[in-house]
Structures are given as C-alpha cells and as structure tokens.
Write a protein that binds this DNA or RNA. Structure first.
Lengths: 203, 203, 203, 203
DNA sequence: CATGAATGAGATTTCATTCAT
DNA sequence: GATGAATGAAATCTCATTCAT
C-alpha cells in the first residue's frame, strides 16, 4: 500500500548530472553506461529505468540546458531596457551557463556541435537542431541590436552578420579557453571582448 | 628515395584521405576501420600495414594538415610585406585549408578539439597539443600585429588578447557555417569580418 | 476455510488467468513478469506473494487445467454408458477446454509440449510429465474402446495404437486450426472427424 | 593477394547445423548465441559474420528445411504415378525429414509452430508463414487424392478436410512420439496409420 | 499485504585487431 | 604485401527477483 516514493524527475536530474560529468571528461561516445552508473552511485540497470539509452541521457541534458537558457534569456529581455545592458546580461548568461562551478557544460558543447552537424542516427533523430538553437540565439541578439539602433545607441550595417560574428566570437573564445584554461579568465576576457564589440557598434 | 617508398607514402595518404571522409561524416570515434577500408578500396588488414591503429591515422591526418598549414603560413610571412596583406592571406589560408572542395577538414576540427581538450590516452599522448598549435597561431597573428604597429598601420592595446579574439572569431564563424552552410558563404563572410576587424585595429 | 484463504486462491487464479493471456500471445519464455503484473492489475512484487517464479505460474496453470480436465473426464465416464457417447463427450470436453471463449489454452499447449519434451530444470522438474498425461489420455480412450468392443459396438485391432492415432489426430487438427483459424470451425471439424473415426472402428 | 578462402555457404550450413542441435535441446528462445558458438567450435563473434542474429539463424534453418522438402516433394510427384505410392512416399519423406539420424528437426517444429502462430517480432516479420506452408502441404495431398479419385482408387467426400485430417494425424503422432520415443517406432507406426488411412479412403 | 524502484547476472552485439593464406 | 575470416574483450541492454517502505 505504501511503495517506495521516489521523485522520478529528481532522479533523472541526478543521472543527467552524473552523465554530464563523465561526458565532459571523456566525451559522449567514449562514456560507458557503467561509468555513469558508478558516478551516480546506482546500478547499471537503474539508468535504463529512467532513460532509453545513452543518447536519451544526452538529449535530456541538451534539452534541460537549453530550455533553462531560453527561460533565462527571456527574463533578461523583460527585465532590462537598455540595449547595452541586455547585451551584457546575455553574454553573462551564456558564459555562466557554460562554466559555472557546478557544471561542465562547455566541454559538452563539443559533443553537441559534433552531433548537431552530423547525420543523425535513429536514436537522436533531429533532436540536436542546432540550426534552430543558433537561429534563436541570433534572433535574440538581432532584436537587441535593432532595439539599440532604434534607440540611437548602435550603428550596425547588417544585424544578422553582426549577430553571427558576436556569437561566433563567444564560441571561439570559449574554445580557446577550453584548450588552455590558464591563458585567460574566461569571464574577464568576455567582458573585454564585450567592450571592444560594443565600442565597435556604438554610434 | 626508391619508388617503393614513394608508393608507401602515397598509399598512406590515400588511406588518410579515405579516413578523413568518414571521420567528417561520423566523427572519429564512430568511424569503423571497416568503413575506412571500404572507402580506401583496400582490405581491412591492409590498413594495419600502414598504420598502427585508428588513432595513428587520426594523428597522421592531424599532422599532415598542420604541417602543411605551418609551411604555407611561413610562405605568406615571407612573401608579403604589408601587415594587412599578411593578415588577409593568413585568413584566406585558414579558410581554404578548412573548406576546400577536396577536403572536409572543418568537420574534423570538432574531433581535434574534443581530443585536444580531453585526457589523452597513451596512443595520442601529446600529439594533439592544441595549446601549442593555438600558441603558434596566436604568435603568427601577434607578429603580424606588432609588425603593423611598428609600421604605423595598426593600433592595438593587447596583441595577445586581440590575436585570441581574432582566431576565436574565425573558429566560431566556422562553427556556425558548419551548422548551417546556407546561412552565409563562409569565404565572403570571412572577408567581411576581416574588414570589420582590420578597421577596428586600423590606426 | 477462512475467507482469507478463499481470497488468496481467487487472487492466484486471477494471476494465472492474466499469465495465460500473455503466455498465449508471446509464449511463456518471452512473457515478462511485468507483463503479467500489468494485465493482472497488480504490482510486479505482488506476484511473488503468490508464486515462487514464472515457472511456478506456468505449473499452476498447467495443473489447474489438467486437474479440471481429469475431473470432467471422470464425470463423463460415470455419466454416459454408451461408448460412442463417451467418446463424443470426451472429444467435446477436449475441444472446449482448449478453445472456449474465456481461455486461450490451445496456444499454451505449444509451450507445454515444448517444456514437456525437453530437459527440465529444477523448477519444473517432473511436473510437465506429458508421458503420464498422454498415458492417462490414452487409457481413457482405451477403456472406452475396450468397453465398446466388449459391448459389441467397436472392432479395433490394437487399442493403444488406435487411441494414439485418435489423440494425435485431435492434436494435429488443433495445430492446423491455430495456424489458420478461418480454415475450418474447429468444433464442427472435430465432429466430422469423430464420425469418420467412429465409422472406422464401428463393428 | 591470396586471402583465406572460405566456403561461406558451407560455413553458414555448419552454423545452422550447430544451432539446430541446441535449438532442439533447449528450444530457440532459451538457446544462447554462446551455446551455438561453442557447438560450432567458433567464436561468438564469428556467428555475426554470417547471421544478423539468432532469429536469422532460425529463419535460415526453417527455409533450408522447407525448400528441401518442397524440392523432394516435387520429385516424388513426378516420379510416381500410382496415387497410393505417391501418398506413401510423401509420408515417408515427411517422416525422414523430421527424424533422420543427422537432424533433430522434429523438436524444432515446436518452435516453428510457436513462432508461426504468434505475433511476429520485427526480426522474424512474416517469414514463418505456416499458413502458406500448410496450404502447400494440403494442396499436394489434395492433388494426390483427386488423382486417386479420378483414377478410381479413392473415395473421398471432402478432399480438403481429408487432407487436413491426414496432415494433422501425422503431426499429432509425431508429437506423441516426441513425448515418448519408446512408445512406438515412429516410422513403423506411420506405416500402420497409412494403411488405416488408405483403407479408409480406398474405394 | 502490496508495491515498484533498484539491481546485477547474464544475454546480445560490436568491432579493433590478428594472422593464416 | 594484401587480405578478410576469425575472434574475444568490452560494450549495451534486459529482466527476474529482491526488499525498503
């Protein structure tokens, strides 16, 4: 009459978090289900109670992350009026989502990119729709830029191109930081870049 | 220098080229030796006459590519005097090395990054030394920048930071292009970015 | 005879009935305990309150069925005097026990045969003693035949052989009916066969 | 230039034969790939060089058997003119195909029936088309019966029904023989049954 | 009593690598 | 040299059974 009560969603999150750790260390493909189970401190079989397979965990990790980002981005857009502030907050959000102390999402971006640009297998199908994700990203930036242009803050020729460049710079800098974490403080550097960038588009 | 040796080197190149094709399609880890053999039109066992294992092919691919780049970069540095031209040529070299019609190296950069930022196994060891590669890259740019500053062309505060930003932007733009190849013409975009960038550092 | 015990027996019957349904659909080996629990509308663990394991359910299903048959066969032997009637009633009993609308026992006969002819594990042990079951079947038929011979109704050379043939024909016809249920109406066909058979042994 | 030469078809046959042995002992579902490999004296992995999975072996076994039977049945129909001889030869073929000393096909019929009457999984799909197999069987018998009727040998009311009964009796007798092999000599018994049957339909 | 979450033994399956020809 | 058949280590995945609640 009173079975064990388990918060299934919480457990899923725990497994995803364990998976994230190993994914970031070894990459998704080289991560074994046994590794995840060990880190999550559960049996191999238990993972399959919550996920269909490894790709399913990966997909959940992916979706958890980006739905969170999307929500937080929406909040920023609401909360801040000044386009420069919006831009700064957006960058700050991106950076912290990638490198806060509890997560290792930056490393996993490599697997997401890899999965996203390649032919999808039947497990993944079209879940890793990076085209959409990046379009959304760009659209957020484009909106901010247009807002800034209308308000007379920015002067930008091609908003799409500028947005791409902006996002690309962030990604590329993150990559270099992943390669050599002591080269610079990612957060600080990003701020510097922001300055350069905002100066570049300032009217 | 007997013909045998030439043949052997040529065959190695053929295998590496076959591997590159599958690597770019599936990623290195998901590529099977059998796939490579089939594309190279040779027997599975034959691969082992030329390479120790899959990582060995990957390493060769990696080294072939970057030694070529290094050579060509040196040529550019020699051939051109004007810092702006040097920079333009360098970007042009980077772009063509990634996306010329005969190769699919851009996709493979994802595996190189993934391998480079992660714990290396004994096979790979210190081969994927991206820290060194990127340092070299940066140094080339830094040299150009300093040359430009000395010659009174550029005005740059922090050459290392600027070089990082420059390289990062190129990488990040490439990523977006991989995700959605029809979004923009990589080569053209790069030129635009170059303009913006060079304008940004122009004295 | 406390109500508890009645409930327990009733619940066992319910589980067996649920099991029978899945057994007939998938076969015993491919039936999962979870499937049975779902159909029985109880928890997986609850099954183990009533049965030791899957084989135990199978054994119970088997024994319920054949003890019922045995009882009903005994009733027929008592109730009817005329050997022809006895034979007809016996066939009727066999057929209805296999294909009445509430059960799917015919399909399960395949698993019973399979289990019966093969090396038994310790769980099943000597339970699926088809040799005994079929001997009993044959003996019932043999008795009827001998009765019929004595009473001057039948003329049979070898009663054992005839009994085997009789039972075999029933089994074989059932098989064909399982394979293609629309080919003939099992009950009707059986009647026809009975006629042929009884004609064949009629004096 | 001179790779190992292996008769792939012969090797497939060897694996199928090894599988048949275990299938007949344990049943298809309980047979492990490791069992088959051990009996075939090859590595587990080697099986997968020749078959997709266990069901694939089962299907091959099935198809090998019935294509052989079909061929031999056709030969009989050609070779013999007398309907009684045809019938006898057909029974003889059926019996030897099931119980010759080198094979254990009779036991496997249980798995074929089980697979044939149940919902097929994606591996098997509709390969075990017993409806067709039995229709073909019946048609052979029906042809012989009609031939016999035309030639004035037999007197049969309903040829389809009679054919079903005939095949059913064979199957059912085989079952009893499987259950208790010492009860009777299958081959001899079959002959007896044939006599009874042929007497039954003799004009 | 009833439950279903947890488990790991054991099955399937993959594939880099070896090696006889 | 070239080959691809053979292999088994290692991965994935399943599911009967247990047991804390």
């Amino acid at each position: 009459m009173s079975p064990k009560i388990v918060d299934k969603e919480e457990k899923k999150r725990e497994i995803v978090m364990a998976a994230m750790q190993i994914f970031s260390e070894k990459g998704v493909v080289k991560t074994k289900m046994a590794d995840i189970a060990k880190v999550a401190n559960i049996g191999k079989g238990t993972i399959y109670e919550y996920f269909k397979n490894k790709d399913d965990i990966f997909i959940n990790l992916f979706e958890m992350h980006f739905s969170q980002i999307r929500q937080e981005a929406a909040l920023i857009m609401e909360k801040y009026n000044n386009p420069t502030d919006k831009l700064k907050q957006f960058v700050s959000l991106t950076v912290t989502s990638l490198i806060d102390e509890h997560s290792n999402f930056a490393e996993i971006m490599l697997d997401i990119w890899a999965e996203g640009i390649r032919e999808h297998n039947e497990n993944i199908n079209h879940v890793f729709d990076l085209e959409r994700i990046y379009r959304e990203y760009r659209n957020v930036i484009i909106q901010i830029l247009q807002d800034g242009i209308e308000k007379g803050f920015f002067k930008v020729m091609d908003t799409t191109l500028t947005a791409s460049l902006f996002i690309g710079a962030l990604d590329g800098i993150m990559l270099q930081w992943l390669i050599q974490k002591d080269l610079f403080n990612f957060a600080t550097l990003t701020e510097n870049i922001m300055s350069i960038f905002i100066n570049g588009i300032k009217k």
